[in-house]
Design a protein around this nucleic acid. Sequence first.
DNA 1: TTATGATTCAAACAAACGTTTGATTGCGGG
DNA 2: CCCGCAATCAAACGTTTGTTTGAATCATAA
Lengths: 206, 206
Amino acid sequence: MITSQFSTKQRILGAAETLFAQHGFEKASLRQVTAAAHVNLAAVNYHFGSKENLIEEVFRRRLDRLNTHRQDALRKVEHQPDSTLDQVLEAFIKPAIDLSLDQNGGGAFMRMLARAYAEHDQPLRKFLSDNYGHVLREFAVVFHRLLPHLSKEELYWRLDIVAGALTYAMADFGLIKRRPGTTERNHRKQAAEHLIRFASAGLSAP
Amino acid sequence: MITSQFSTKQRILGAAETLFAQHGFEKASLRQVTAAAHVNLAAVNYHFGSKENLIEEVFRRRLDRLNTHRQDALRKVEHQPDSTLDQVLEAFIKPAIDLSLDQNGGGAFMRMLARAYAEHDQPLRKFLSDNYGHVLREFAVVFHRLLPHLSKEELYWRLDIVAGALTYAMADFGLIKRRPGTTERNHRKQAAEHLIRFASAGLSAP
DNA sequence: TTATGATTCAAACAAACGTTTGATTGCGGG
DNA sequence: CCCGCAATCAAACGTTTGTTTGAATCATAA
């Protein structure tokens, strides 16, 4: 056997994740994906029905884990009486970093997530909102408890800014390039630390 | 004459900007663009040579103005001895807001710019870096003067975060929807104010 | 072993894409 | 008037796209 140990479905999902992140949803063709997965072209429509469904499956696989990790981290923090702003921020940011550091295309997935925000089409945004929105609202409640002087509107504005900066940083959009001496792992760890420090001060602004 | 007063070239540029922002570079076809511009399909290749060239022209038209506005605003601020962090931030952020508020597709262009960051392909990123990078470096020098306690590396990390949050906010990615009572103009003005307050505190973090 | 249902495969499908062609139109200067 | 060039037009070009087809192959249970 020359192909990998994983099933056809798994291999398609893995290859799709990498290629979608590298070239975008439209530019990455099913022929590229199936070639990279060492799988017949028709296998995508057999196992997933359509390219659109494949895209959603790729998202679901990772987002489910990200959501539960964030919720677990949040519950650990909110049930202790003296939780700090930085701890809640870390509960929000750390799982995203960990996911981006996951071997087998974690970073690729993060770029794909950012790309999904940029692709402004409504079906995909609705899908993301359904799988994403309730977690953000849970965090908003806890942030509101820690920053009671902020109006609900002010708080939402600032959380939106944090989410934007996080997305941007994790997707490696920025001008900051990894220093040759540091690993990708350390680069993203630094990004998380800087982001938490920055966001903590920003959220606490008068 | 049923078509607009503008020339074929202008009408193509306008329609392209809107449709690229709405559907992305790949999804928006030249047939859609030329139909919206009330122009023959072949006109794009006649006037611009290729779709790739058209994309670059759409960028150049707006970016040139954004750059000079930012540089003008920066020079006004840096040549007064008691300039503040908020003033420099405003010199960076305000021109972007103004551009996004420009009638005839300013908001559309901003979404297109964010999309260009997401499209991770190198030719476009090089083009943006060439037309964008030197302005960012000018701002970095002034910020460094106002925040001397920050190492150059720390400063670059934080500026990268600011740029990311600005891009995200201007492209209207976030979960914050415009309130029914407020105009788009006021919505973006509010976004700018919140962003400046947040970024000012974030940059000043210990 | 044989029969059955799931999977894989090469091949072809129609549709849409960016681009090119060659004829036609419109218009300003000689 | 008419020449010459720039602009516009309908039509077609060759690719590439996602999807479908029907036969071949595999695995499993009777």
